[in-house]
């Protein structure tokens, strides 16, 4: 039975089944958009946390580190309550739409982006900052130099966040509703089709999801390899 299911799964993949393609496309759209928003907010936040002296920085960083492990279903529940008719954002009518899924995944991705980018920025050798300062950089130019130096760490932080949201099912299932052709993505389809005993599509998507996550991890590894951390001290 398993072999049969695998055969059918591969034929689905190679025949470029339109339903399958639609699901894959939506997965990338939702997770990609969430990642984009999370990076647009998270990266400047990480830079400020890493470079500026601000009060209660430690608490905020610990909070972000804790939120890295937010259970997706809890985020789903929270976003659901906000977006449901009686919720404070209910008037927007976003529940069970791809937008709701993007919101939920942004919340999941943001702490990862902030935490990992922050730690990349603060691990930059202090001699980099001093070098740019002694060469006549303005405070802004010094910050740019430090952020540039942490670019591989920042990339791996963003890719780690992508890995997290691509594989996530709990939050988008709750707020997206898994509506065929509208809010059905790879992970939610796998959950549903497995329940129905319809393994071909589930396996086909499983293979694709694994391939995607393999690619993500290969990139991650590549960036981590290029990340060179020099330890630096006075004298």
């Amino acid at each position: 039975m398993l072999i049969e299911a695998f055969k059918k799964a591969f034929s689905l993949i190679f025949s470029l089944d339109p339903e399958l393609l639609g699901i894959i496309f939506l997965s990338f759209k939702v997770s990609g958009a969430a990642l984009l928003i999370a990076s647009a907010i998270g990266l400047p936040l990480a830079a400020i946390l890493g470079l500026k002296k601000i009060p209660a920085k430690g608490i905020f960083v610990s909070l972000m580190n804790t939120f890295m492990g937010l259970p997706p279903v809890v985020v789903g529940l929270f976003v659901y309550m906000m977006l449901s008719r009686s919720g404070s954002l209910g008037f927007m009518g976003l529940l069970y739409t791809p937008s709701a899924m993007i919101i939920a995944q942004t919340i999941l991705a943001l702490p990862i982006v902030v935490s990992l980018c922050h730690s990349a920025i603060i691990s930059v050798d202090r001699n980099i900052r001093l070098a740019s300062q002694t060469l006549g950089a303005t405070p802004f130019q010094i910050s740019v130099a430090v952020i540039k130096e942490s670019r591989y760490g920042i990339m791996s932080g963003i890719i780690a966040a992508l890995g997290r949201v691509m594989a996530e099912v709990g939050a988008i299932l709750i707020v997206g509703g898994n509506i065929a052709g509208y809010t059905r993505v790879m992970t939610t389809t796998i959950a549903l089709e497995t329940d129905k005993g319809n393994f071909e599509l589930a396996i086909a998507l499983g293979i694709i999801l694994l391939t995607v996550s393999l690619c993500i991890n290969m990139f991650l590894h590549l960036f981590q390899k290029r990340e060179v951390v020099q330890a630096g001290l006075w004298d």
């Binding site: 001093l130 002694t134 130096e149 630096g232």
Partner: peptide, 12 residues
């Protein structure tokens, strides 16, 4: 003016 430190701090 500029200062060259013993640990130069080279950019990647």
């Amino acid at each position: 003016i500029t200062l060259v430190l013993p640990k130069v701090g080279l950019f990647n």
